[in-house]
Nucleic acid binder design. Structure first.
Lengths: 108, 108
DNA sequence: CTGTATCCGTGAAGATACTG
DNA sequence: CAGTATCTTCACGGATACAG
């Protein structure tokens, strides 16, 4: 694939609808599938799995399966995934500021 | 709207399919509609206008109309839009590194 | 040159049920 | 608990034509 501008490559990796949200949660530490679901009430099982698979394929997320019953699967950022941290941090903090701004406007 | 995590607010603003690309181009300076189209061969007139309108509505992009014939419209980042720069810069440079990595893999 | 309006196909994403 | 498999829906986004 030829990109017209490098940033498109970034969007290929974290441009999915839920990918940034998932990554932001994983920054705080590894999470089980069920934990991620609770953290993202809006996502369906299908989408969660799908987005995680794609992140895995791009080498930014790790999937660890514990061979036990009931099953336990844990997701975490790979070392390469950690290189996205500056982006994720920036997006998180900008979002906080933006929300504060919106609520201020609503108050008026 | 209630966000489950602040970063969702950020995605509301720059989560559109072309928004980050547009913003990255505007970082380098104001651009006319036709210039943006050339910079983004894959985008349609409709999508370009739509995404620009939404960015405008969110206060991150400015639209300046010159009253002349033929029409001339110039887009630029607003002051608030500039606050997104850390995110955009990080995404751009990460993309560059990611592309380099991919091409290296292909070479093997 | 810039923008709007319309039509329409595709595919993303939801709901549901089922497996191990 | 975690994941897969269908089926369906609907909105995103493309193509096209037209207007100022």
């Amino acid at each position: 694939m030829a990109y017209n501008i490098p940033v498109e490559a970034t969007l290929d990796v974290i441009g999915g609808k839920w990918k940034v949200v998932i990554m932001c949660h994983l920054i705080k530490g590894e999470r089980r599938t069920s934990e991620l679901k609770k953290l993202m009430p809006g996502i369906t099982q299908k989408m969660l799995t799908q987005q995680l698979r794609e992140l895995e394929a791009d080498g930014v997320v790790n999937r660890t399966v514990f061979d036990q019953v009931p099953p336990k699967v844990v997701y975490s950022l790979t070392e390469y995934g950690w290189s996205l941290r500056p982006i994720l941090d920036a997006m998180c903090s900008w979002g906080e500021g933006h929300i504060a701004l919106i609520e201020k406007e609503v108050a008026n």
